[in-house]
């Protein structure tokens, strides 16, 4: 292996390897969102509709955090994964609405 090549490889390595900070931040964020959701339910005496809104909000934020950081969706070149997941979520929304609508309205 030529030394020239290994130097440029080393440079690229130093350039692009990301530290663990972002992932620890994502972890702490997920932790906080989880604790808020559980605390809202454990507190008990809050208005039911309000609790539902808190729960749904916390879940959606946490899923975005985890998709973006841990599944690398914020990185470049991830258009295709985003299309896949969005298409899946689209079908899921239709199914949930359909199932609830058919049975209860």
């Amino acid at each position: 292996m030529s030394s020239n090549h290994s130097v440029s490889g080393e440079e690229a390595r130093r350039h692009k390897v990301e530290g663990p900070q972002k992932h620890i931040v994502a972890f702490i964020l997920s932790l906080a969102l989880t604790i808020i959701a559980f605390a809202a339910v454990a507190a008990g005496d809050i208005n039911t509709t309000f609790t539902y809104i808190i729960l749904v909000l916390m879940a959606i934020i946490q899923v975005f955090v985890q998709l973006a950081f841990w599944m690398h969706m914020k990185d470049r070149g991830h258009l295709f994964p985003i299309i896949c997941i969005v298409a899946g979520v689209f079908v899921v929304f239709m199914m949930v609405i359909m199932a609830v609508y058919w049975l209860w309205w």
């Binding site: 899946g88 199932a99 609830v100 049975l103």
Partner: peptide
């Protein structure tokens, strides 16, 4: 990696069907 994301899209739908059944019942 590309193929795995197609699989995950299908997994979203699969879990979605189970979720819709659970939410309705």
């Amino acid at each position: 990696i590309l193929g795995f994301w197609i699989f995950l899209g299908a997994e979203v739908v699969l879990f979605g069907t189970l979720f819709s059944a659970f939410i309705a019942l």
